[in-house]
Structure formats: structure tokens, C-alpha cells
Amino acid sequence: MSVWDVFNGKTRFLEDNMNVDKFVYTLGHGYEKFFNGLKEGKIIASKCSECGVTYLPPRIYCEECLSEITEFVEIKQNGVVLGYTIQNVDKDGRHLKEKVIWALIGFNGVRGGIFHKLVGVEPEEIYVGMPVKPVFREERKGSINDIQYFTKTV
């Protein structure tokens, strides 16, 4: 429903809503393997048989040679911090009750990685190359949030 906004006695704006907040995103083969792997507490990547590149998140095509990828492999969960940032405000500029550390996690022999929360680490402790591992939720349903966070490897 539209409404007319009145400003200083003159009509100046028409207000409306795009109403596009409902959508279904088909996972496809690559993300199906990835998310169902997370559900089982595994990290699944895909490996190009032509040029040997292993991709995370997994996909069914190779960026380098455009070959179809049919090989999916479980990778070791020991990762390292490639970079990080510490979020202080939400999208509306409100201070978060607790700052969130976000990190880009890389894995040996893998192109790409996983962007996720880093917990149990003080900001001054973090360094590029810091070993980390994922902590999975007890109840998992096949989403990126099946990983609760990454934390340092003791």
C-alpha cells in the first residue's frame, strides 16, 4: 500500500515497498556437497582432475580450465588465519554488545577458504598464519552456521 508524504504542504515523495524479501536459493551440486558435509561435521572441497586445483567452497566447474569437476574431497580441518577484522557496529551503525572477530581461514593445498567468526581469541593474539580449527554446533541442519565459529588450535 502506498502513502503520500506531505512536506511543507507539498507532496514530494511517494513511499512504497519492493516486497522482495522471500526467495529460495537452490544449492546445486557444489553447495549440496558442502552443506551436507558440514551437517556431518566435515569440510568438503572439490578437486579439478585436469589441473589439480582444489576449491573451497566446492563447485562443479574449474575456474582455470572450465573442466567439469566430479571429485569431492574431505579436507583436513586445521586451518590458518589469512586475515581478520573486528566488527564494532551493525549495519545501522549501532554498537554491538560484543565485538565480533571475522576471519578469512585458509587450508593447506586449497584455493579459497572459509570466512567465519573467530572466538576464544584476544585481538592482540591474532596473527596471519595463526592455526585455527572449526567448532561445529551440536545440532546441525546443513548451513554455513553449522560451524559455530573457528578458534585457535591449542
Binding site: F23, Y25, L27, Y31, F35, P57, L82, G83, Y84, T85, I86, Q87, V89, D90, K91, W102, L104, I114, F115, H116, K117, V128, S143, I144, N145
Partner: peptide, 24 residues
């Protein structure tokens, strides 16, 4: 929508990540 939107509400987070890696 699969791997970032469920986690992040503020897109400036990616700028913070890029800035930190660049500066370091």
C-alpha cells in the same frame, strides 16, 4: 546468499578485512 549473508549484516566488514590485510 549461501555462505556470507547468513553470517554478516554489515558489508563494511569486508572493507575492514581488506584494509587490514592490505595495511599489514
Amino acid at each position: 546468499p549461501y555462505i556470507h549473508r547468513p553470517l554478516v549484516d554489515n558489508v563494511h566488514v569486508f572493507a575492514g578485512l581488506e584494509m587490514n590485510i592490505f595495511m599489514e
